[in-house]
């Protein structure tokens, strides 16, 4: 995910669905569609594709996705929305029963930030989602730890 990609999303007034493939700049989401989709249960061993890839603008979150025990890495990017000088980006990785609420980012964004990695070591098995408290344009991706 490139910085320019984030910037293009910032120019878009609406979030868009990403499932292991980018949607077009300015594409409006289908009515009622979720912000993200998951690729099913993740396995850190030998996986070669992202378990989750999602993007949006403003508050929201991903769809639920499963993780098996193991190490992962979360990658995020964020940029102020079109016309804004800055934004605040905060998010947490949570189990869907909210027994685990795991903050992953909480910072002001004054210019586009791309591909920040947060290690998720020793993750317990469960169904997770990403809860996003942000007024930025943003992307998240979860991959098995190489």
């Amino acid at each position: 995910m490139s910085l320019s990609h984030v910037a293009r999303r910032a120019a878009s007034a609406a979030a868009c669905l990403v499932l292991l493939a980018a949607c077009g700049s300015g594409a409006a989401p289908p009515a009622g569609s979720p912000d993200a989709a998951a690729s099913g249960a993740g396995s850190p061993a030998g996986a070669s594709t992202a378990i989750l890839q999602t993007s949006g603008e403003g508050p929201g979150g991903s769809e639920a996705f499963d993780l098996q025990p193991g190490d992962y890495v979360l990658t995020w990017s964020a940029a102020p929305a079109a016309g804004a000088d800055m934004c605040h980006h905060r998010a947490a990785l949570e189990t869907t029963d909210e027994e685990i609420v795991q903050p992953v980012v909480d910072q002001d964004v004054t210019a586009a930030i791309a591909d920040q990695q947060v290690p998720l070591d020793g993750q317990v098995a469960g169904t997770y989602y990403i809860d996003v408290n942000s007024d930025c344009a943003w992307t998240f991706r979860v991959d098995p730890r190489p």
Partner: peptide, 16 residues
């Protein structure tokens, strides 16, 4: 649902 102001784990949502 989401609070404009909060001291909790999710914090305040400026988007509202």
């Amino acid at each position: 649902h989401h609070p404009r102001f909060s001291s909790g784990q999710h914090g305040s949502y400026v988007a509202y």
